[in-house]
Deep mutational scan, measured.
Amino acid sequence: DVEPGKFYKGVVTRIEKYGASINLNEQVRGLLRPRDMISLRLENLNVGDEIIVQAIDVRPEKREIDFKYIP
């Protein structure tokens, strides 16, 4: 289970102007929005990149997770 405040290694699977889709595994994925990137710009991400993200909002009833990137 993903817990708010914990850090996870994820893989960038899609990049859109509203954010990047991050997969932690086949069943768990979430969104990294541009506003939640401290020192990383969306255009510097590539599909397949592995990054460390922090879960900031977990809504299991909607199967949604928001991530934050902290270098």
Rank of each mutant, 00 (worst) to 15 (best):
D1E: 13
D1V: 14
V2L: 09
V2M: 06
E3Y: 12
E3K: 13
E3N: 07
E3S: 10
P4L: 15
P4S: 10
P4M: 13
P4E: 11
G5H: 05
G5F: 06
G5W: 05
G5I: 02
K6H: 10
K6T: 05
K6W: 06
K6E: 07
K6N: 07
F7G: 01
F7L: 06
Y8R: 00
Y8M: 02
K9R: 13
K9C: 15
K9G: 02
K9E: 04
K9W: 12
K9A: 08
G10K: 00
G10L: 09
G10M: 07
G10N: 00
V11P: 00
V11W: 11
V11I: 14
V11Y: 11
V11R: 10
V12T: 00
V12R: 00
V12E: 00
V12S: 00
T13W: 04
T13R: 04
T13H: 04
R14V: 09
R14A: 14
R14H: 11
R14K: 13
R14G: 10
R14M: 10
I15R: 00
I15Q: 01
I15H: 01
E16T: 15
E16P: 01
E16V: 07
E16H: 15
E16S: 15
E16L: 12
K17S: 14
K17G: 10
Y18G: 10
Y18T: 11
Y18A: 11
Y18N: 12
G19L: 04
G19S: 05
G19C: 09
G19R: 04
G19W: 12
G19I: 05
G19Q: 05
A20W: 06
A20G: 02
A20C: 08
A20T: 03
A20V: 14
A20L: 08
S21M: 15
S21F: 15
S21H: 15
S21D: 10
S21G: 05
S21E: 15
I22M: 01
I22V: 09
I22E: 01
I22Y: 00
I22G: 00
N23L: 14
N23M: 15
N23A: 15
N23C: 15
N23R: 15
N23W: 14
L24D: 00
L24E: 01
L24H: 01
N25S: 14
N25V: 07
N25C: 11
N25T: 12
E26N: 13
E26L: 10
E26V: 10
E26P: 14
E26I: 12
Q27R: 13
Q27T: 14
Q27E: 12
Q27F: 15
Q27S: 14
Q27A: 13
V28T: 12
V28H: 08
R29Q: 15
R29W: 13
R29A: 14
R29E: 12
R29M: 14
G30Y: 02
G30I: 10
G30A: 03
G30W: 03
G30R: 01
G30E: 02
G30V: 07
G30K: 01
L31C: 14
L31H: 05
L31T: 10
L31P: 03
L31D: 04
L32G: 01
L32K: 01
R33L: 06
R33V: 06
R33F: 05
R33S: 12
P34C: 09
P34H: 06
P34E: 12
P34M: 07
P34T: 08
P34R: 08
P34F: 08
R35P: 05
R35G: 12
R35D: 11
R35Q: 13
R35E: 14
R35M: 09
R35Y: 07
D36A: 05
D36T: 02
D36M: 07
D36N: 14
D36K: 02
M37V: 06
M37D: 06
M37I: 07
M37P: 02
M37N: 08
M37H: 04
I38A: 10
I38L: 08
I38W: 05
I38H: 12
I38Q: 11
I38G: 15
S39H: 15
S39M: 11
S39R: 12
S39P: 15
L40A: 09
L40D: 04
L40Y: 03
L40T: 08
L40H: 06
L40S: 09
R41Y: 10
R41V: 12
R41P: 06
R41Q: 13
R41F: 11
R41L: 14
L42H: 03
L42E: 03
L42Q: 03
L42A: 04
E43V: 07
E43C: 12
E43L: 06
E43Y: 07
E43K: 09
N44P: 02
N44W: 14
N44T: 11
N44R: 06
N44D: 15
L45C: 04
L45N: 00
L45F: 04
L45A: 01
L45K: 01
N46W: 09
N46Y: 08
N46I: 10
N46D: 08
N46A: 14
N46P: 00
N46Q: 14
V47D: 01
G48I: 00
G48A: 01
G48E: 01
G48Y: 02
G48V: 02
D49N: 02
D49R: 02
D49S: 03
D49T: 05
D49H: 03
D49C: 06
E50N: 09
E50M: 13
E50K: 11
E50R: 11
E50S: 12
E50T: 14
I51N: 00
I51L: 10
I51C: 01
I51E: 00
I51A: 00
I52D: 02
I52W: 15
I52E: 05
I52A: 02
I52V: 13
V53R: 00
V53I: 08
V53L: 07
V53Y: 01
V53T: 00
Q54W: 10
Q54H: 04
Q54G: 02
Q54T: 06
Q54I: 12
Q54L: 15
A55Y: 06
A55F: 07
A55P: 03
A55S: 03
A55R: 03
A55Q: 02
I56M: 13
I56N: 02
I56G: 05
I56E: 02
I56Q: 06
D57M: 13
D57P: 04
D57H: 14
D57R: 15
D57I: 12
D57V: 13
V58H: 05
V58W: 09
V58A: 05
V58Q: 03
R59I: 06
R59A: 05
R59M: 05
R59W: 07
P60S: 09
P60K: 10
P60Y: 10
P60W: 12
P60N: 10
E61V: 08
E61S: 11
E61L: 08
E61C: 07
E61K: 08
K62Y: 09
K62N: 10
K62T: 13
K62R: 12
K62P: 07
K62M: 13
R63P: 09
R63S: 12
R63H: 13
R63A: 13
R63V: 08
E64S: 08
E64H: 09
E64T: 09
I65L: 08
I65C: 07
I65Y: 09
I65S: 03
I65A: 06
I65V: 10
D66S: 13
D66K: 10
D66W: 13
F67I: 04
F67V: 05
F67G: 02
F67K: 02
F67A: 02
K68D: 03
K68H: 05
K68W: 05
K68A: 15
K68S: 11
K68T: 07
K68R: 15
Y69G: 02
I70S: 09
I70W: 13
I70V: 14
I70M: 11
I70G: 06
I70T: 11
P71Y: 07
P71D: 08
P71W: 07
P71K: 08
P71F: 07
P71V: 07
